[in-house]
Amino acid sequence: MKRLQETLQQGNKLLSIYFTAGYPNLEDTIPILKALEKNGVDMVEIGLPFSDPLADGPTIQASSTQALKNGMTTEVLFDQLKGVREQISIPLIIMGYFNPVLQYGVEAFCKKCADIGIDGLILPDLPLAEYNLHYRLTFEKYNLANIFLITPQTSVKRIMEIDKASNAFIYMVSSASTTGKTSGFNDEQIAYFNRIEGLQLKNPQIVGFGINNAETFNIATKYAKGAIIGSAFIKALTTDGIVGIHPFINRLR
């Protein structure tokens, strides 16, 4: 978690990339991570694929389905990531849905993440109340940041609760949507970015959903600490494979 907190303190306009582990090919996890680090990406969200990804649009759904077909499982991902810290030094976050974590065992999962050198988790369907009640101490024991989402509809009161429960950054969903749905920002979204910036939260915010090119990346990072690109990156991987990572990142900044 320290690695993540340091990155958040040092940099601005942080670029975070999401990809689905096991996509396009089962063994691509480490090569993708290496290419991302080499091309100057500041942190990475490694997607643990799930059969029923409720918050995701068609692009990430399709990549998850393919990754599962390729044979990706929680155990396989952990095996691939064993020793990753000898090769990769940027912060690594695992993003997934709660059920696979629950089946692995929350404590066992957190321990494995700590052993590997994972810095945090994003589990969109693990709600704040449940986390505080049952899992917070486990996450803390293994020094894992739990990253919560906020949306344009999240009340100020709840944002404050989420800020309090967070210890790295807040994942700021740019619009009411699933992933990969929108592109470009409208006035309403800019007003939302301004509103959140004005709250002066203790945790920095990283914007996700709807970031797909240099323009949207620059706008989002004017208001927030950084931005996350997911669906657009998966699309680039689909068409150009790992060799496409260099030009894709170059086009962003």
Partner: peptide, 22 residues
Amino acid sequence: GKPGIIHGSKTLLMQTADGQIT
């Protein structure tokens, strides 16, 4: 089924050992 999460609820759920819904 085993206890798991589907459509926002913790309940008995048919799933793989890995937690994928079948």
